[in-house]
Design a binder for these strands. Sequence first.
DNA 1: GGCGCGGTTGAATGCGCTTACAGGAGGGTC
DNA 2: GACCCTCCTGTAAGCGCATTCAACCGCGCC
Lengths: 351, 351
Amino acid sequence: MGAPTVYDVAERARVSIATVSRVYRNPDTVRAQTRERVLAVARELGYVPSGNARGLASRSTGVLGLCFPDYADPEVEADEDGSDDIADPEHMLYADEITRGMERAARRHGYALLIAASLAGGPESLVAKVAGRVDGFAVLARTVPTEDLEIISRRLPVVMVAGPREIDHLDHLEVANADGEFAMTTHLIADHGLRRLAFLGGAADSPDAEARFRGFRRACAAAGLPVPDEPHTRGDFTQADGRVAVERLLARVGRPPQGLVCANDQMALGALQALERRGIRVPEDVAVVGFDGIPLGRVVRPSLTTVTQPMRKLGETAVDLLVERLGEPDREPRSVLLPVTQTRRRSCGCL
Amino acid sequence: MGAPTVYDVAERARVSIATVSRVYRNPDTVRAQTRERVLAVARELGYVPSGNARGLASRSTGVLGLCFPDYADPEVEADEDGSDDIADPEHMLYADEITRGMERAARRHGYALLIAASLAGGPESLVAKVAGRVDGFAVLARTVPTEDLEIISRRLPVVMVAGPREIDHLDHLEVANADGEFAMTTHLIADHGLRRLAFLGGAADSPDAEARFRGFRRACAAAGLPVPDEPHTRGDFTQADGRVAVERLLARVGRPPQGLVCANDQMALGALQALERRGIRVPEDVAVVGFDGIPLGRVVRPSLTTVTQPMRKLGETAVDLLVERLGEPDREPRSVLLPVTQTRRRSCGCL
DNA sequence: GGCGCGGTTGAATGCGCTTACAGGAGGGTC
DNA sequence: GACCCTCCTGTAAGCGCATTCAACCGCGCC
């Protein structure tokens, strides 16, 4: 069952293949009558233009790509009520929101979106697969080896999302992690009068988490408080990790801090659970703040004060950058810093 | 800056293009020494095989597609605390979960995923775009005109997800909507002894919502209760709609029903809000149940009893069906019905 | 000394479409 | 009637790769 091609349509409509092509690409350069005839035959034959051939001939695909990390695949159902965890791990949520934003923006610009997570498998398989089929793509931090990116970005627009700027001719996009955490920490210090603060950090190799920690330190320094060299405790961004990290912290220190600044919301939720178990009241005994602005933060009790990061907008902006560059390949590389906003709720004492 | 091609690599490595191609497709048919030389040149030049050319020559793309409806694009940020809505509209969440499931499964099978939402735009633009670039794809119900599908499915594996089986040679996948709602309604009747039930329906053209309503009716009939011809009230799947629909219902009937069966979770959440505002207690005065199993249902108070539908599994199964059919094009069309599970929480009176 | 054989490589063709480029057909203009 | 334009359509040359077929190179073997 070979799919019908331009040749089949052309033959049956008694025109040349060029005309068939024009009917699809530049309909108004074809006489209306001819056009209708061709379209009728196409419908009759079930003709669908081959995207591959089109892309090959026209050197563009109408597809944008997104590579994201191979997040763990825990094979657990999210909704087991027996569990204490009330949401998926952050990175999945994160990738999801970015995907959504990109999909939306791509659609607006007339592009489709090809998504692929890095597979532990082949050497360059992921990038090769994506890079060969798109007009440009976005990579989430730590997804693709820098050297591969280096090579590919020489011939294809690439925007690095939420990662450090390792390659300087790449467009680059991230959120104001440090500034956001600085502002939030300052809020705890200045508005709530807290002085003994602890930071619940993320993975040491996460640029986001480290940037947030820097913001925290800067705020401490600005307020004349002690500036820690390392986060007081760490987790790997999951709720369970947050719980454990806080328990470790409480076990270690005599009395709990007055304020607990968490590198992300998931861990902050875990922190809330751990504190509740110990009978420590939030925000009366200790204020807790997160980072990300996941929807659950609004629903939990106490509701979570957090730095809301525009995840969806991140995806949209990535597409905008790609589209811009496609229109103007020699443009100077741009580096966009998306602002974050504070969402003050109960857990810091604001409500 | 034309991207380097096989020709460039071949020339520089002093081999023919056939050898370059073989290095990538069948590495072991090339002498190790030659292979290394080619790979080195490829790296040096920044060569990335063109997916288009590959696809054209080999008649397969390694990509699967997903078409979903053009859900509203409300341009509202989800996390506005001033709002009462605490989650995105159902269909977005739904499409998201399916995307996730498909992405995961596709990855396991070595495929990338091309996603596209139907755009109000061109006539066949969406399908043409996707269909021309993938080895097979899934469509969510009401996304693509049946006649287009009819045509395309003649030459490309297509699986219809969560929709009615309009085309009988298509693989087909849905969840047990009717059975699930039947069981849940029966739970209210038999286990909680409720007799005056109301159904909060969805859009009249939604196959899912209608199937659920059928399940509801069947349960009523089986229990000897009055069987309504139409849902007692309707909404369009959003939380706000659920609120409004319930308010309308309450305004119309003298006393509230004992049990309110909602066509989806979002509307059930809206119902909870409407009831709370009227001072009607859940589950003491009226039991409320939803359908879908969204994460929020666990967190709201009272927690929401619901029929949990395996959304992610839906996506995974769609991929499985596609892969199966790709391996065996002439296989009989399959129709898979995914089971749902009951999640009993507080809102029906179980906790 | 010819023969067959596995292991490698090259030449050539085609995948289905886009896109200059060229050409024919009408319809004005002077 | 020659000339020029505008419309429309056909011709032909690729786009970058996979793949078939044939060729070549030792080898061991009869």
